[in-house]
């Protein structure tokens, strides 16, 4: 970066109302959610209108960005801003996930063992072994009697292993699509993206089947103590990211079909691919730390 030369003109977009609408939409959504949870009838309506506002902005804003990109307003200088920005954004996502991985580590290696190993003369939970997976010793805290549910932990070598394979191959197909784009082989680009989207959707399908199974047959729910909470929050947030990633992949698939992106200028594509790889890596960690070990 030290070798900067005269850059010429930097694109500063025209004034835009989208950010303001987006924030207002978020305000409505969040406060609506709170009212909803506390059983005020305005809640659902506020959430709905907020959601519509957010949706409107998502379409409008991205449409605008794509339009600007296609009409050649972004040159290398702008492009580099987007790249650095995307990297920083993904870093912040890493930090978000590490909070939950941190919680998993803490509960599993510190709090559950501690609960099982108080000074023997003053043990609070007599029969609690403190092995992982654990739904906790149960007991009276905050005035409510909690009896840990009987549950079967999720085994790694069924659907999760299959899902690992699926996500890994989807990582390969995006890269293959990227090669196609670089060599300007459009069919390869489109096919690669299509396969990636298909794999993403399969992953999500299997994941929801697994959740359904966990809730209905394994007794494994959000309420199943430390294990249930970390399991569902980690895989759930990952699933959410896969969903977002898939939507973004669909968008760039459509754009590719429309003939967008050039071999030397395709930040939109790369941003999504990076995001997808990030989701991939998180899954690998999940597979090892949540399912396997």
């Amino acid at each position: 970066m030290a070798t900067q030369t005269q850059h010429g003109h930097y694109f500063v977009p025209n004034p835009s109302l989208y950010p303001f609408i987006l924030s207002s939409g978020l305000l409505l959504m969040t406060s609506g959610f709170i009212f909803n949870i506390h059983h005020y009838s305005a809640g659902p309506w506020m959430m709905l209108s907020g959601f519509l506002a957010v949706l409107y902005v998502l379409f409008g804003w991205f449409d605008k960005v794509i339009g600007e990109s296609e009409s050649g307003m972004y040159k290398n200088w702008e492009d580099r801003s987007f790249r650095v920005g995307m990297i920083v954004f993904i870093s912040s996502e890493v930090a978000f996930f590490s909070a939950f991985f941190g919680a998993l580590f803490y509960l599993r290696n510190i709090s559950v063992p501690e609960l099982a190993h108080f000074d023997p003369s003053f043990t609070m939970y007599k029969d609690f072994l403190g092995t992982w997976p654990s739904a906790g010793p149960g007991g009276v805290v905050l005035g409510s009697e909690y009896k840990p549910p009987q549950f079967t932990p999720m085994s790694a070598w069924g659907i999760p292993a299959l899902n690992t394979l699926i996500l890994l191959s989807s990582g390969a197909t995006v890269t293959w699509a990227h090669w196609g784009l670089l060599k300007n082989k459009r069919p390869q680009l489109i096919l690669g993206l299509f396969l990636t989207v298909a794999l993403g959707l399969t992953f999500l399908g299997l994941q929801s089947y697994e959740y359904h199974h966990a809730y209905t047959e394994m007794g494994l729910t959000l309420g199943a103590g430390a294990y249930g909470a970390t399991f569902f929050m980690l895989t759930g947030f990952h699933g959410l990211h896969v969903t977002l990633g898939t939507i973004m992949l669909i968008v760039i698939l459509v754009r590719s079909i429309k003939g967008h992106f050039k071999p030397d200028h395709h930040f939109g594509f790369e941003g999504v691919a990076w995001y997808w790889h990030f989701v991939d890596v998180v899954w690998l960690l999940l597979f090892v730390l949540v399912y396997w070990l």
Binding site: A103, G136, P137, Y146, P148, A226, A229
Partner: peptide, 27 residues
């Protein structure tokens, strides 16, 4: 983002039955 994660856990503990911060569930 870590703070965001922490308050998210708080939200689920409050309303969705998780036990991140409750000893009864191993939290």
């Amino acid at each position: 983002p870590v703070l965001a994660g922490a308050v998210t856990m708080l939200l689920t503990d409050r309303h969705f039955g998780t036990h991140f911060f409750n000893a009864a569930g191993g939290g």
